[in-house]
């Protein structure tokens, strides 16, 4: 698998002070693959996700996305700001709390990456941004400020903002955890659409039914280690480890996705 994998993580370690949050993590994501990361809070899944685009700098191990590889630990130098920025431009990230830029309109939010990072001409960036907003069903919200949008709409704008950079991979950090239940569906729908288009994705989520539908692999983490890993349906329907079983017992594992309200 490592021959064709888009993301490859080896022996990854990370500590915050004395708290070791990632202990020797290995992870492969195939090109076009969708991996769901699940686990109780404090399990290290968000930290692992943030190590993939180096928002969190690991203490040891290596991270490769596409052709770019970084090694960490003794003797290896930390990448400089330019290298880091160029690398992050190829990975899109969606945050739990959206983190839209409140001083910019929806359109400007989506244009910001292409204009500032890619140095794209404003007119081209606007065309691109409008197309991305249309894709997430928010074309008519282009000139509104984020404060006027619902949580679900904000998160869809955040997805459009990440997509506007035309990333190789998309990382979702509990993208639906801050949403009212009735707004979860519209965001999951967009993510599902991306999966069907072949986007390589790593999704940290508590939506087990969604992970079962959309992810092809599932990783269950606890206390900084991967406890169980396998095809999503197999792990969810028939977990092998006691810890995985105990965790999954808190959720409805199957059933329909939450209904998506039509784009508004």
């Amino acid at each position: 698998m490592s021959e064709t994998s888009k993301i490859e993580i080896r022996s990854l370690r990370k500590s915050f002070g004395n708290n070791e949050v990632l202990k020797n993590i290995n992870l492969d994501v195939a090109k076009g693959g969708v991996v769901a990361l699940i686990g109780p809070s404090g399990s290290g899944k968000s930290t692992l996700l943030r190590c993939i685009n180096l928002l969190v700098v690991p203490d040891g191990g290596s991270v490769r996305v596409g052709d770019t590889r970084f090694a960490f630990g003794d003797g290896s130098k930390l990448p400089d700001v330019r290298t880091l920025a160029n690398f992050r431009a190829t990975t899109g990230m969606v945050f739990q709390h959206f983190n839209l830029f409140p001083h910019m309109t929806t359109l400007q939010n989506v244009m910001e990456g292409p204009v500032t990072v890619r140095r794209m001409a404003k007119a081209d960036a606007e065309t691109l941004a409008r197309a991305q907003l249309a894709k997430v069903g928010l074309a008519e919200k282009a000139d509104q400020y984020p404060a006027t949008l619902s949580g679900g709409q904000k998160q869809r704008v955040a997805i459009a903002r990440a997509l506007a950079m035309e990333p190789d991979v998309m990382l979702f950090d509990e993208a639906t955890s801050a949403l009212d239940p009735e707004l979860v569906g519209e965001v999951l729908n967009v993510i599902q659409q991306l999966a069907s288009e072949g986007m390589t994705m790593v999704i940290v989520t508590h939506e087990i039914a969604f992970a079962r539908e959309v992810a092809d692999r599932l990783i269950f983490m606890r206390d900084g280690v991967v406890v169980e890993e396998g095809p999503a349906r197999q792990v969810i329907d028939n977990p092998q480890e006691a810890a995985t079983r105990a965790f999954l017992n808190h959720f409805h594992r199957t059933g329909a996705l939450p209904p998506a309200t039509t784009a508004s």
Binding site: R88, F95, N99, F101, E112, M165
Partner: peptide, 18 residues
């Protein structure tokens, strides 16, 4: 200003100065 703002900028590929 919330840390998430600079994280979102960084995630888009902006340098700290940008």
């Amino acid at each position: 200003i919330d840390r998430g703002q600079s994280e979102a900028g960084a995630a888009l590929g902006m340098t700290p100065v940008q």
